[in-house]
Structure formats: C-alpha cells, structure tokens
C-alpha cells in the first residue's frame, strides 16, 4: 500500500492533544465523538494526553493542542485553563461557553445587586420557587472550588488561539477544523458550515 494517504502522516510524530471541560455541559466533548468513524482517521494523526476521554488527570508532557470546552465559573476552571495555557502550544475554545461564557453566563445578568453572587446562590438553593432543599443551606463543602464573581469567557483569562463556534459545534466542523489545523491548511471557516439559518 505505497499510496496510502496515511503514509506521510504516519512518519511524522503524532500531535498530542489535551482536552478539558470547564463550565460547560460536556456536550462539546460529546460532539467530538460525533466525528464517528472518522475518529479512526484522526487517531492516525494524534494521540490524546490529559483529557476526560483518557481519564488522564495531569499533563504527561507538553502538548501541541489544547481543546477547552466551557468558560470559567470557578477558581478551579481558572487554574485548569492557566495550566493548559502553560502546557499547550495552541489553545482552541470549543463551543459557545468557552467563547462567550454561554448558558452559565446567564448569572452575569444579575448586576443591579450589591451581592450578585449571594443573590444567585440564594435563589438557586433557598428562595427559588421550585427548590426542594431540606437543609436550607448553600452547599459549602471544603472540596468545592470557590465561585468567581461572574462567568468569564476563556479569552478573558488567557490568550486563545482559535475558537470553534456552535452549541455544540457539529462533528463535521470539529473534524474539518482539527484535520486542517493538523495539516497546516486551516484558513478560517466556510460560512456555510457555521451559519445557523
């Protein structure tokens, strides 16, 4: 099989990819799996390092690409994101939460309050109409990371190199973008692939 397309790529060292889900719903990671059988083609080009997909919790070595789902709503998100920035050459924001804060950023709309965070938590755990919380307390286990004053987009915390829009982005867009990036052919998105009407 001398004409196999994988042949040149197979000679190159595989690109290392790390992924993380911050303040997101894991939908974007699910969307990565929507690549379906093309995952096999992709795996010929890459190997995964730290990621929920591999269950590796810490970077084993420096990575070429970091993929981030979700924005930053707590201190742990910030910590992970900064860790990714330090250990990855290229950072990609995947989906609307990473790019703009997304659905979790709805709490940023509580702004005409002296203590927006308290107001948000009290409504979520104590005063909300449909809450059934018998403890009448806001959860405060020491293992819970501290929340930020508001939800930040990833680009507000570190520099991001690329952003793939969508909620969630389709498997096609993810595959196209990643494979073009890996072969150095990425020149931006085709309008047809990212428009929603």
């Amino acid at each position: 099989m001398p004409d196999s397309q994988d042949a040149p790529a197979a000679d190159l060292p595989k690109a290392r990819i790390a992924t993380a889900s911050l303040a997101g719903c894991f939908g974007c990671h699910m969307a990565i799996l929507d690549i379906d059988e093309r995952l096999i083609d992709l795996m010929a080009l890459v190997e995964f390092d730290r990621s929920p997909l591999t269950d590796i919790k810490k970077f084993t070595k420096r990575c070429d690409i970091g993929i981030i789902e979700g924005g930053c709503c707590n201190e742990e998100n910030v910590h992970v994101l900064q860790d990714f920035r330090e250990n990855c050459d290229i950072l990609i924001g995947l989906g609307q939460c990473a790019i703009m804060g997304g659905l979790p950023a709805m709490r940023n709309a509580i702004m005409h309050s002296d203590e927006p965070l308290r107001e948000c938590l009290e409504e979520a755990y104590i005063t909300g109409r449909y809450i059934r919380n018998k403890t009448h307390n806001i959860p405060n286990d020491p293992a819970l990371p501290l929340l930020l004053d508001k939800v930040y987009a990833c680009s507000e915390v570190v520099e991001m190199d690329y952003q793939i829009p969508g909620c969630a982005p389709t498997g096609d867009v993810i595959f196209e973008t990643l494979s073009k990036l890996l072969t150095g052919k990425f020149r931006g998105f085709e309008r047809e692939t990212i428009k929603f009407d």
């Binding site: 020491p142 501290l146 004053d149 520099e159």
Partner: peptide
C-alpha cells in the same frame, strides 16, 4: 500568554467571604 488583566483575587473575593474559607488553589 496568561492575561494580566484578569485578577483572580478580586474575582474570588466575594465567594471567599460568602463561603468563609480561603482558596486552596
């Protein structure tokens, strides 16, 4: 490449007071 304009200390200050504990990170 980490934003100098993002101040983690002021971002978690409110939660620190609410939870009455400090950040382990």
């Amino acid at each position: 490449r980490i934003r100098d304009t993002f101040d983690i200390q002021s971002a978690i200050d409110g939660a620190r007071k609410l939870a009455k504990r400090r950040s382990y990170v």
